[in-house]
């Protein structure tokens, strides 16, 4: 039983080290505080224990002391806040060239769609040293994507995308846990993140029987669902031309401007009347309940690919891009 007693989690991502550093700092700080306070209590308890000759001395308090132990802790707290906020800021700001993995969580499994077209369940293969951005949604309740070895966790919500990113630094197999209680088999909603050397990863990628890239699948759906009849790519149709739209500001009919991110594209497919682009009529039918979460991801990936910069930015250079696009990695 005791061989199973590691007291520290594996450190396998670029952020894990900085989280551990702050954690160790806090452990030290709080350890010192605890020992200090407990020692004071113990010393006072023994030194001033009740005995025949010992009378309590009346002391009202001391404003100077009160101010000292108000403002010194406050200063320390603000220091901790700034440090921890800096880590959080990095955790929430994905690097520009991240590879993207679309994730659909459901009771009680994790489904992953790589942009190269590979699909996995409860297993996520990623290469070491590459920034990976998870674009996640749930098809039922709230789940949470948690990889302790990476020190990252992000709730996965129905009806929207949430994102997380990491850069794995050490090959190996790590726990993937669902961290938000999601019903009966919450504790069974676990999987493995397999971090591989880049060469191995390429082998793994080419080994799968993927039917084209994710945006390729999206392109097919774009045709078969009839999107392309209005959203024409050569000219402005009854719907906006989607070329180059992703990642750009969009002027809406009501005068607002929003950025065309994943959540905007998603919402515009499911309930198009929510944000109508300026100059267009609200004639598009809602696709809520018509497309599955996986199909939606493919469509989003396709719309993104229409704004992809010329190849060379990042992504997977040794994969043949479908005609007219590169695997999209830019936002």
């Amino acid at each position: 039983m005791f061989e199973n007693l590691p007291l520290w989690p594996v450190r396998a991502s670029s952020t894990a080290g900085s989280v551990d550093a702050l954690y160790i700092f806090l452990l030290t700080l709080c350890g010192v505080m605890c020992i200090g306070i407990f020692t004071m209590i113990a010393v006072f308890a023994i030194r001033y224990r009740r005995s025949a000759g010992n009378r309590a001395e009346p002391i009202e308090g001391s404003t100077a002391l009160e101010l000292t132990w108000t403002f010194i802790p406050l200063g320390i707290f603000i220091f901790i806040f700034v440090w921890s906020a800096a880590i959080f800021f990095r955790e929430r700001t994905p690097p520009k060239d991240s590879t993207e993995v679309y994730t659909v969580a459901k009771q009680w499994m994790w489904k992953f769609q790589h942009i190269e077209g590979q699909r996995e369940i409860n297993e996520l293969h990623v290469p070491v040293g590459r920034d990976v951005r998870m674009i996640m949604t749930s098809q039922d309740v709230i789940h949470s994507f948690y990889v302790p070895a990476f020190r990252i966790k992000q709730d996965v919500l129905p009806g929207r995308y949430t994102t997380a990113w990491f850069r794995a630094t050490k090959p190996g197999t790590y726990h993937l846990f669902c961290a938000e209680y999601c019903g009966t088999m919450h504790s069974g909603m676990v999987g493995d993140v397999v971090v591989m050397e880049p060469a191995q990863y390429q082998t793994w990628l080419s080994g799968g029987a993927a039917a084209g890239s994710l945006s390729n699948t999206g392109q097919g759906l774009f045709q078969s669902l009839g999107c392309s009849t209005c959203h024409r790519l050569d000219t402005q149709g009854r719907g906006p031309n989607l070329t180059g739209v992703f990642g750009k500001p969009v002027l809406l009919e009501d005068g607002r401007t929003v950025t065309a991110d994943e959540n905007y594209v998603r919402e515009s497919i499911l309930s198009p009347t929510a944000k109508v682009v300026s100059g267009f009529k609200p004639i598009m039918p809602p696709f809520q309940g018509i497309v599955s979460e996986e199909q939606l991801n493919a469509l989003v990936a396709y719309v993104k690919s229409l704004s992809a910069q010329p190849s060379g930015a990042a992504g997977t250079p040794n994969l043949k891009p479908p005609p007219g696009e590169t695997p999209s990695t830019t936002q």
Binding site: S18, L26, I80, S84, I87, F88, R151, I152, Q154
Partner: peptide, 16 residues
Amino acid sequence: TGLFLAALGIDVHVTD
């Protein structure tokens, strides 16, 4: 230990 949880970077790892 509440200080740990209020620290954003650590809370991400230890919450839940």
